[in-house]
């Protein structure tokens, strides 16, 4: 069975959830080989998780350069492995960095680039959701093995035992004139809440929340539900909540089982980031708010009355 190269998304060897989704998607195309690019010792830490999601091989591309230069080392390693293994496809997370790596790789290997797939079929055809979920598209590579970036949260990760046979590969030397050096990192402090794009429930607040302090109402409900917290652009622009939590055209696209919109009017740019959610519940004072046009269940009312009551009900049911 042909190999499928999967670029492992990790922070210092801690495997991100999207990698388990990529390995799951890869199994439809062939035999997944996980590619770990990072500082020495990274692959060892990642191996157990990679094995439990079906990685037959783990290519360990470890060097100091691999960690200290941006994007370029990952492209170099994948290009060398693609040449060596003639994979059926290469899968990368559709994160900002993943999309950059995959595009450069496709150019390098002369392959079709398929961006931000929400589904991958066994023949390498992918499904994409574009214009903020307004259109569904199917596309495929017409030249070479496809290089596919897969949207985090769009594939349900399923465990499968893999041999995870480790093989170390060289990290080609980086030309310092062609790559930016990483001089420091400040990772997102995630806290205890689930990652926005990975959460099965998202509770979001908009301009109607009124202040940064009052966002505690959103957070309280989110915590009771084990949900991630999101914010509309209006709330972020007003300084109520940090930009990393923005949902919408210029923020993150989420597609959870349940999306609860509190005090969000539902401008088209916000809807573009959440309208593919399975179930949408909205609370807004304005009965004419466009969010109600796409909500499965809506309450016309004051979020400061409704949200705490809902929080109490949820807590009661959890016992």
């Amino acid at each position: 069975m042909a190999e499928v190269l999967v670029l492992v998304d990790h922070v210092d060897g801690e495997v991100k959830k999207v990698t388990t989704e990529l390995l799951t998607a890869a199994r439809a195309l062939g035999e997944p080989s996980a590619v770990v690019v990072g500082a020495p010792g990274t692959a060892g830490k990642a191996k157990e998780t990679l094995a439990s999601f079906g990685a037959a091989k783990v290519y360990a591309a470890e060097s100091d350069d691999a960690a200290s230069y941006h994007v370029a080392p990952k492209v170099e390693v994948l290009a060398a492995l693609a040449e060596k293994t003639s994979p059926a496809a290469v899968l990368v997370a559709a994160t900002p960095e993943g999309k950059e790596v995959s595009a450069r790789l496709a150019l390098r290997t002369g392959s079709g680039l398929l961006v931000d797939a929400v589904g991958v079929e066994s023949d390498g055809t992918v499904e994409q959701s574009i214009f903020g979920g307004g259109f569904t598209v199917k596309s495929k590579s017409t030249k070479g093995a496809p290089v596919i970036s897969v949207r985090p949260g769009s594939v349900d990760a399923e465990q499968a035992q893999g041999a995870a046979a480790e093989e170390s590969v060289d990290v080609p030397a980086v030309d310092a004139a062609k790559a930016a050096k990483v001089t420091g990192v400040e990772p997102v402090v995630g806290g205890d809440r689930p990652e926005l794009t990975e959460a099965s429930v998202v509770v979001s607040g908009g301009r109607g929340v009124g202040s940064a302090e009052q966002f505690s109402v959103i957070e309280g409900l989110a915590d009771a539900m084990g949900a991630a917290v999101g914010a509309s652009r209006a709330a972020v622009d007003s300084g109520y909540y940090p930009a990393q939590f923005q949902v919408g055209q210029t923020g993150k696209t989420v597609s959870p089982q349940l999306y609860i919109a509190l005090g969000i009017s539902g401008a088209i740019q916000h809807r573009a980031g959440m309208q593919t959610s399975k179930t949408i519940v909205a609370v807004n004072k304005d009965p004419e708010a466009p969010i109600f046009e796409i909500a499965d269940y809506g309450i016309v009312g004051d979020l400061f009355q409704v949200a705490p009551q809902l929080q109490e009900e949820v807590a009661k049911r959890k016992g």
Binding site: L114, K138, P287
Partner: peptide
């Protein structure tokens, strides 16, 4: 190097209960 084989607008979401 890639081609779109199918494209369809998503059926619009309909408003539920308010």
């Amino acid at each position: 190097w890639s081609t779109v084989s199918e494209a369809a607008p998503k059926p619009p979401r309909t408003a539920g209960e308010k």
